[in-house]
């Protein structure tokens, strides 16, 4: 049994402790917003937060989450009101969309640590998240837009 919190909800899962966290999220908890991409921690599609830090859930065993708090894209906000979600919509960022939940989770940590990031900061923080559609320019614009919203007090 592995117990942890997901999006502020306590869960107890009867799974093998070595099961990738991503599997537990998607298959056991039905939180399918987090995607399986490469499976080797190289693309960033599976990014979630563990105690407020990014992890690649495809390679992290669920046992690593025991007693901790996991936040997935579903927990970023319950109503798409997070500045990043609003900015993503405003800039029409996604194309196929597959990588976008991971992009958003990484961007959220960037803005937490650097509320007014430069282009260089964005590149540095987001390089681990690959987008095969090449939406990088729109991702950058959306992060700047979200930063602006937060600076104006529209932050959550």
């Amino acid at each position: 049994m592995v117990s942890f919190s997901v999006n502020k909800r306590r869960v107890n899962l009867d799974v093998d402790p070595s099961t990738p966290l991503l599997w537990a999220l998607r298959e056991n908890l039905g939180l399918t917003g987090t995607k399986y991409g490469c499976g080797i921690a190289q693309c960033g599609a599976c990014t979630v937060h563990l105690n407020g830090e990014a992890i690649r859930s495809c390679v992290a065993p669920v046992s690593r989450a025991a007693g901790k708090e996991v936040t997935t894209i579903e927990g970023l906000s319950s109503d798409l009101s997070h500045p990043l979600q609003r900015a993503w919509i405003a800039e029409d960022v996604p194309q196929c969309g597959y990588c976008q939940s991971g992009q958003l989770m990484s961007a959220a940590l960037l803005l937490r640590e650097k509320p007014q990031p430069t282009d260089e900061d964005i590149d540095e923080a987001m390089t681990g998240n690959i987008c095969r559609c090449g939406t990088y320019p729109r991702i950058r614009k959306a992060i700047h837009r979200a930063a602006g919203m937060m600076a104006k007090g529209e932050a959550r």
Partner: peptide, 22 residues
């Protein structure tokens, strides 16, 4: 590391089995 690119983002406290895994 920094922001969403910290070491622990991908690396565990043990080797992962398989080539090209962290």
């Amino acid at each position: 590391g920094v922001t969403a690119e910290k070491c622990s983002t991908c690396h565990q406290d043990h080797n992962l089995v398989g080539t090209h895994l962290p």
